[in-house]
Design a protein around this nucleic acid. Sequence first.
DNA 1: TAAAGTTGTAACTATAATTGTTTCAACTTT
DNA 2: AAAGTTGAAACAATTATAGTTACAACTTTA
Lengths: 145, 145
Amino acid sequence: MQITSKFTAAVHILACIDIFGGQMRVTSDFLSGSTGVNAVIVRGVLGQLRAAGIVETRQGSGGAHLAKALDEVTLYDIYKAVDCVDDEGLFHFHENPNAECPVGRNIHKSMDGRLQAAQAALENELKSTTLAQVVADTRKIIDEE
Amino acid sequence: MQITSKFTAAVHILACIDIFGGQMRVTSDFLSGSTGVNAVIVRGVLGQLRAAGIVETRQGSGGAHLAKALDEVTLYDIYKAVDCVDDEGLFHFHENPNAECPVGRNIHKSMDGRLQAAQAALENELKSTTLAQVVADTRKIIDEE
DNA sequence: TAAAGTTGTAACTATAATTGTTTCAACTTT
DNA sequence: AAAGTTGAAACAATTATAGTTACAACTTTA
């Protein structure tokens, strides 16, 4: 099981928009070239980021732009935007526990809080890092190359 | 994206082994009935739990038994046993970033540590709860019914 | 020792999720 | 009007998950 690669692709995309946005028009085709992700998928990700208020795009003119400051976007915002984990939660209960068995009808209840806590721990960690930090690290690595 | 339901099924199975193990033989067929999970899948999960040293099973005689005290098994041990997340990690990098792009060839490096930290936060939370706690909660809920 | 019941496992199927692809209308700029 | 772009629908390919069928190996017990 793995979280969709659209998440890391989205971070990559946002880093590109910041790093290359000054010099050129950052189109879905360019982003496809940098990420290795199909241009239609890139446009899909950009659409999700747009819906979340993270980027701006326009038909025709082309080129994506950031809609927020880098330090106002956390990895969690991106994770939510690309819908890594749906409303059902990260953990997936087996679906037909037997209600006639005392364990079967209660196991969900007795685990739920703990599983939610684990998911929250993951998400809080993602909230603690901003795009500004990731882009700063990326720029630093590039400069040191 | 969701973590395999074999994880919650495994916890359910272990709770059943503890709660019903005194009174009866807890077979894969019985566990299939309580969990609603196919008996062959149950046997597969039991095999993984056995490989991890958490349960004991034997061909022929039937009936699974716990190989450890309830408070010596954490949710993390079960999560590892049923292989919820493989060696690649919870997060999944897009696979063909362009090495000729400065962002493409460095994004992995600049995100990796933070993604590992997020995964570790999840796993540490799972380490903090034992099967003893889950079974105690389950028994309590059953008693209050 | 034969019968019944069970585990372990391989091979296969069904279903769902993920990613990629094709196609084209709508839009903007030149 | 032409060129380039986004948005989105429809479909295909691939992979992952869970279920199913089938059966050999094993244990108990009658």
